Amino acid sequence: MTIDDLLDIEKIKTTRHLYSHYYDGGEVDKLAALFTEDAVCEFGANYGGDWVGRKAIHENYRNFMSRYGGIFNVMHAVTNPWIMLKGPDRAIGRWYLLDLRTAEGTEDPLILFGIYDDEYRKSGDNWLIHRTRIHFLWPDRDVHPFRE
Rank of each mutant, 00 (worst) to 15 (best):
I111L: 15
I115R: 08
I111N: 11
G105H: 09
L112T: 03
L110K: 07
P109F: 05
L100Y: 05
F113I: 07
I115N: 08
W127I: 01
D125I: 12
L128Y: 09
I129K: 01
T102H: 12
I115L: 14
R101K: 15
L112D: 02
L128H: 12
K122S: 10
R121M: 03
P109S: 07
R121F: 05
E119I: 00
L110A: 07
D118Q: 03
D99A: 15
D117C: 00
N126P: 11
W127M: 04
H130I: 01
K122F: 08
E119K: 00
H130E: 03
P109Q: 03
R101W: 10
E119L: 04
I129S: 05
K122Y: 07
A103G: 12
D99C: 15
L128T: 14
E104V: 14
D108V: 14
T106L: 09
T102E: 11
I111C: 14
L110Y: 06
A103M: 06
G105W: 07
D117R: 00
K122M: 10
N126L: 06
G124I: 09
L98I: 08
R121T: 06
G124Q: 02
E107Q: 15
L100G: 03
S123T: 08
E104H: 15
A103T: 08
Y116L: 03
I115H: 10
P109N: 05
K122T: 14
R101E: 08
E104Y: 13
R131S: 04
L128W: 06
D118P: 06
R121N: 03
R101I: 09
D125F: 11
D108N: 15
R121V: 03
W127A: 04
T102R: 12
Y116T: 00
I111T: 11
L128V: 13
F113T: 05
R101A: 13
D125K: 08
L98Q: 11
G105S: 11
G105R: 13
T102W: 12
D118A: 05
L98V: 09
H130V: 00
G105L: 12
I111M: 13
D118H: 02
Y120P: 02
G105T: 08
T102N: 10
T102C: 15
I129F: 05
G105C: 08
D108S: 15
L128I: 10
R131F: 04
F113Q: 10
R121I: 02
W127S: 04
L110T: 08
E119F: 00
S123Y: 07
T102Y: 11
G114F: 01
D118V: 02
K122R: 14
A103H: 09
D117K: 00
I115A: 14
D99K: 13
L100V: 05
I115C: 13
P109C: 04
N126T: 12
R131I: 00
L112N: 10
T102F: 14
E107N: 13
S123P: 05
N126C: 10
T106K: 09
Y120I: 06
L128S: 09
Y116C: 04
F113P: 01
P109V: 02
G114K: 01
H130R: 02
D125T: 11
